[in-house]
Design a protein around this nucleic acid. Sequence first.
DNA 1: AATTTGCATATCTTTTGCATATGGATCGTC
DNA 2: GACGATCCATATGCAAAAGATATGCAAATT
Lengths: 305, 305
Amino acid sequence: MIELRHLRYAVAVAEEGHITRAAARLGIQQPPLSQQIRALEAAIGAPLFRRQPRGVELTAAGRAFVGKARAILRDTELAVEAARRASRGQEGQLAIGFTSSAAFHPFVTGVMREMREHAPAIKLSLEEASTGELIEAVEADRLDAAFVRSPSERLDNLTITHLLDEEMLVALPDHHPRARRDPRRRISLSSLADEPLILYRRPTGPGLYDSIIAACRAAGFSPKVAQEATRMVSTLSLVAAGLGISIVPESMARLETAGVSYLRLDRAAGLVAPLALARKKAPAGGTLGRLLAIVTRRVKDRAGV
Amino acid sequence: MIELRHLRYAVAVAEEGHITRAAARLGIQQPPLSQQIRALEAAIGAPLFRRQPRGVELTAAGRAFVGKARAILRDTELAVEAARRASRGQEGQLAIGFTSSAAFHPFVTGVMREMREHAPAIKLSLEEASTGELIEAVEADRLDAAFVRSPSERLDNLTITHLLDEEMLVALPDHHPRARRDPRRRISLSSLADEPLILYRRPTGPGLYDSIIAACRAAGFSPKVAQEATRMVSTLSLVAAGLGISIVPESMARLETAGVSYLRLDRAAGLVAPLALARKKAPAGGTLGRLLAIVTRRVKDRAGV
DNA sequence: AATTTGCATATCTTTTGCATATGGATCGTC
DNA sequence: GACGATCCATATGCAAAAGATATGCAAATT
C-alpha cells in the first residue's frame, strides 16, 4: 500500500538526483531508501527513476508522479492546518479576509469592533487580498469568512451573502476644473468619457474593474484606461499626481488623500460597489456563528433605517 | 508522521459513523483502528471525532479534514494512474482526446490512420469530450494530447499548437427556400439575422458557441438562439427537423444527414473553426513524440499546398 | 437491574521500516 | 590497464509500530 512516506521519499530523491544524498537529507540511511523507492515502483508497476552510474534520473512516469506527489504533500499540510483552524475556531479564533477596498468600510470596521467588544476572548486574524484570492482561501478553509466585492461567480461550495450596495464616487485631482463645482450636484458618467481613467485591477479575478467598464459601456462610451494599478490606494496617489481620474467606492473617500477631490455620480449610472460576505456552506457554529449573528443583525438594522 | 493510512481510516470512520463497523470494512480489528485515529488526532492536535455512546460523530475540525482527505486519496490514485500511463506511453500506448466536432475532421482521422499504419504496435485509446474537459484531462495527465477547438485560454502548463482553420457552413433544412440556391454562391452572415439559430454548447467551456455569437455581433445583429443542443450531431437532427438553422464546421457536413443542406458563408463573416492540439509542456518523448512528428509534418504539407 | 452496544485500555504477536555490512558496476585518475 | 572513488543493490539483524486478542468501562435499551 502506498503511503505518504513513499511520496516524501520520491520527491526528495527527485530533487537531489541522488539516493544517497536524499537519504542524508531525510535523516535515514541509503539502503532503506533504495528499498522504499523500489517498493513504490513495484506498487505503481513502473520505474520512476533511471539508475545511472552517477545518480538517478526521473523517467517520464517519474516526472508525472513526482509533480503530483508534491501537490499531495502540500494538500496534506493544508488539510492538517484546516483541521487545526477549525478546531481553534470552536474555542475562539477566527480568520477574516477583506478586499482592500472593503477594509475601510464602516460596516466592516463596525462589525470587527463589535466582535472585539462582545467577545474579546476571540482572537481575530485578518488578511487582505483580492476577491479572487479570498474566495479561494475560504474554499480551502484557510479563512473562515471574507468581505468581498461583487459576488460574480456562484460557487456551489460557498454561501455568498449580499450585505449592501455602496455608492461609487469619482476621484479627481484638486486642480481639475470640475473639482470646483458644487460638491452636492451629481454628474453623469458620460460626461467623463474623455477623461483618462485610472483603474484598480488585481492580477486575479475581475472585481470592480469589470463593473466600471460595463457601466461606461452602458452609458454609451468606451473608457480610456490610462493606467492600471494593483492596489486601490496607489490608484488614489496616481489621481493626486494628476495622471487622470478614477472611480472608487464611497468608503475609500474617507481616506484623506491630499490633492484628491470627490464628486458624486448620477444615480442613472447605476454604478454601485456591492459588499458581500463569503463563507463555506457548512453549518456555521462556534465563533463564525457569532460573527454571522452580528453581521445579519447589522444588515437588518440598516434596512430598517 | 501522518500517513495515507490515517486518511483512509479517518474517511472510513467518518463514513460509517462507527469505529467498529469501519474496522470491519477495513479488514482490521477495532482496537488498532481506535489507536490509529487517536494517533492522527494527536498529530493534528485536535479531535476529529466526538465519541458518543452509539458511535462517533465528526467535529467541525473532522469535517474540514475528512473532506480534504478524500480529495488527497483520490489524487493519489490519479498520480499512480498518471505514472502508469506515462510509463506505458514509452512502450507504446497513447491516449488522445477529441471534441466531437473535431472527430470527423479529415486531418484528425488522417493522423490517426497514419499512426495506425506506421506504428501498429502503439495502442491508441480515444476519448470524446468537450474542449474544457479535454484541457483538464491533459493537464491531469489522463490524456497525452487532445484535438480541441479555439485555444481560448492560455495555460502555462500546456502547449497549444494551432493546426488549421476550418471554414464553417450554414446548415439548413432541405425544404428551406434558400436551400435551392446555387450551392456555389456564398451568402452573408447578416442575411441570416432573422433565422432561428440552433447552437451547440457543452455544459463546460465556451468553444465555438462564443465565436459564432461574436461573429454575428460583428456582422451587426444579435442572433436569435432558438435552441441549444449538447451534442453537435443532435444540432443537425434539430436542423433536419426544421426547428431552425445552424452553423457548423465544414467537416461536419461530411456526415450525410438526411434532410440537411449546407451553404457556404461569405468570407467577410470571418467565421472559422480553429483546430488545435493541446499537450503538456513537458518534453514529449516516446509515442507522443511520434504523434507530434506526424502532426507537424502534415501541418507543413498543408501549408505547402 | 440486566443486557447490549461500542469505545478504550492492556498485553502479545507480527510485520516492516531502518541500520549495518557487503557486493557490484561505472567513472575518473595515475 | 589497474586502482580508487562513487553510488546503487543485496543481505541480514534489530527495533519500532501496526495489528490481534482479551478485557474493562460507560451509556443506552429492555
